[in-house]
Design a protein around this nucleic acid. Structure first.
Lengths: 212, 212
DNA sequence: TAGCTCATGTAAGCGGTTACATGATTGC
DNA sequence: GCAATCATGTAACCGCTTACATGAGCTA
């Protein structure tokens, strides 16, 4: 039951969260992870199995092997009291507004050497991608509502939280798709105008004003 | 001029993008990076310096040292034709809709063991954080507009692209802040109702329907 | 006198991806 | 017969963070 000297990783919290309701095998954790958590926190199979092992060494979970005859053996994991304490502490903590990594924005930022009409077309294609994801999310929402009723109606608390994060996904995809279209429109509207190469400031950077 | 066997990393594209206009010293690259690119692609100083070295070995950039008397020596980097080709190829490529990592959503997803009123309060606090960032971005936009005119008006193409990505940041922060408030409202509205612990489905996961 | 700017680098370590290995069972 | 499912693991590698080192000059 060696106490964790270093702060747990986010993935550990995710796995503890999945184990919070009841014990699961590694494979079950993997499957559930890929059907729920993966939409907002991704990890590969190899990392998940490795992390579970590590968590056992840290005393956050315990495990036992079940021997099966016609199937590969499987390992059952259960959360320890220490694990539960860690999970509770984390859920209750503040979330920092972490730094962004968005390759599309980076690409757009450096797209001034391409013909604007072409960039506009790329933006529209990207917007279509987000529309597709959006449609997927909305289908999931519709499915949930059909089975269990709306957020307001259900008496199932965990379900409510699933609704909340799902809604964030929907809003995020919608926002991104709309931005793509708006950006494409803006570029194309400009095309009608003069639109010379680069006369004025340009060397100036993103930040121009404000404290800090 | 050894050709790159492995695909360049995104950070390399970012650095090439900064070098595209004119040669810069490592320190200048670092400063510009932290005033523009960092808003949508972050990297630490140590990584940037190391990456520039690596890019020179790969033939994407060249460098020469300038000896200074009253200041530390500095290294000037310039993009090679190979680097320019790599950059052009990348800018013109498709962007995949990369996987998400959002600790706030993960935390919310597993918040069913906390009192809903408390979770609502956390969500509001988080929303305030995003409001703060939003205000910062809008101040930057206002500053740009005051100096160089609106997106529609400027004849400076690179500036247009700065406007575009800035707008995405603004929309993203606004969306997030609004979602936080909506989620908090939803939880609080539920509190008035019965709101039992967990009778019905719960074990069911995120995905309930749809193809794939 | 303290602390910031200029200016570049190295080293340890971790989080995460890619890829590989195994092999019976079940469904089309 | 072919593919997918079940079920767990290891090993190499890479991107990135953290931390440290240096030291002159300028500004409050």
């Amino acid at each position: 039951m060696a106490a964790a000297a270093t702060a747990p990783t986010t993935l550990q919290y995710a796995l503890l969260g999945l184990l919070a309701r009841r014990p699961l095998t590694g494979y079950e954790i993997l499957k559930r992870f890929n059907r729920s958590v993966v939409f907002f926190w991704h990890a590969k199979q190899s990392q998940i199995y490795a992390e579970l092992k590590r968590m056992e060494r840290l005393g956050l979970v315990t495990s036992r092997v079940e021997v099966q005859r016609r199937r590969p053996n499987r390992r059952h994991y259960a959360m320890t009291p220490a694990g539960e304490a860690v999970l509770r502490g984390w859920v209750d903590a503040r979330t920092p507004v972490g730094p962004v990594k968005d390759e599309m924005l980076l690409r757009t930022f450096f797209s001034d050497r391409l013909p604007p009409a072409h960039v506009a077309a790329c933006l529209r294609r990207h917007g279509d991608e987000h529309d597709r994801v959006l449609a997927e999310f909305e289908a999931i929402k519709a499915g949930l509502q059909a089975r269990y009723g709306s957020v307001e109606m259900t008496s199932d608390l965990p379900l409510v939280f699933r609704y909340l994060v799902l809604e964030q996904g929907i809003r995020c995809e919608r926002m991104y798709a709309e931005w793509c279209r708006w950006a494409a429109d803006t570029l194309e509207r400009r095309r009608a105008r003069p639109g010379r190469a680069s006369p004025s400031p340009s060397g100036a950077d993103f930040i121009v004003t404000t404290a800090r």
